[in-house]
């Protein structure tokens, strides 16, 4: 009885969680240009519009992809030495640095966005696309930092000792022991940053200065004119990408462990 009640509660939570997503996905099938649910005259015309015919959406999607891939790569590249420093030395300075690096993620993004807007305006490159990439990389630096740190901690000390005993140099140990064992964690961190960058918009709003638009920005800009089913197509795309990415992380990595589950119990 209790068990059944638990199952019902979980199913209900899942349903509420899925509700707006289902509604948006349904609305994306609308044949007309009004956001109706259930959809009227369902077909895939809006999908064609979003991916092929309407240039503002095609360009926005390109920008989103460039910023997401660029910033996720940069975030991993920045997080790696920092996580390594933290793990290898564990000095006070490296901890402070890691804490400062996580500040943008922890504090309200609107404040960081306003600050970045000022910073890039001083440098004179507000509105350049590389600025968007660097901004997102900083915002999401905390994510690969955490996953790579978890990966480094999971390395068996015996392997390092064995490598040292057999006379491996630091570089060799790094290449043959540390790098392979932390690769899944680096990739997870990359994907976390990628997906969040793809979906982020408030920081992007301040640093893009309306010079270009990502998909989320484009949707936000059209907010006042009301929603159209074409925007719902974007939502469907985004949720599909997220599910695909996290499924991949779960398939090839240890998702419960990344989320901090206990290792001793399986």
């Amino acid at each position: 009885m209790r068990r059944l009640f638990g199952h019902i509660f979980m199913a209900l939570s899942g349903l509420v969680l899925a509700l707006p997503i289902i509604v948006v996905a349904g609305a994306s099938l609308n044949g007309g240009r009004t956001m109706l649910f259930p959809p009227e005259d369902p077909n895939f015309a809006r999908f064609v519009e979003f991916f092929i015919t309407e240039t503002i959406w095609v360009r926005a999607l390109q920008n989103s992809l460039i910023v997401a891939f660029g910033s996720a790569t940069l975030a991993v590249l920045l997080a790696w030495p920092l996580a390594y420093l933290l793990w290898a030395k564990g000095s006070k300075a490296s901890k402070v640095l890691a804490g400062l690096g996580s500040l943008p993620f922890a504090l309200p993004p609107i404040v960081f966005g306003v600050g970045l807007g000022f910073l890039w305006a001083f440098i004179g490159s507000l509105g350049a696309i590389w600025v968007g990439i660097v901004s997102h990389a900083t915002l999401f630096l905390a994510l690969p930092l955490v996953t790579i740190s978890i990966g480094l901690q999971s390395i068996d000390r015996a392997h390092l000792d064995a490598a040292a005993t057999m006379g491996a140099t630091e570089a060799v140990t790094f290449r043959t022991v540390i790098l392979p064992q932390t690769l899944p964690y680096s990739i997870s961190g990359f994907f976390f940053a990628l997906v969040l960058s793809f979906n982020e918009f408030i920081v992007m709003f301040f640093v893009s200065a309306s010079a270009y638009a990502t998909v989320t920005l484009q949707i936000f800009n059209s907010l006042r004119n009301g929603y159209t089913p074409t925007m719902a197509v974007a939502a469907v795309l985004f949720i599909t990408v997220s599910i695909a990415v996290f499924s991949a992380v779960a398939r090839w990595g240890d998702l419960p462990r990344l989320m901090g589950a206990d290792q001793s119990r399986n």
Partner: peptide, 14 residues
Amino acid sequence: LVFILASLSLSEVF
């Protein structure tokens, strides 16, 4: 967790 992470990362606009 996949489902929860996917809805977690879904943009506020959506």
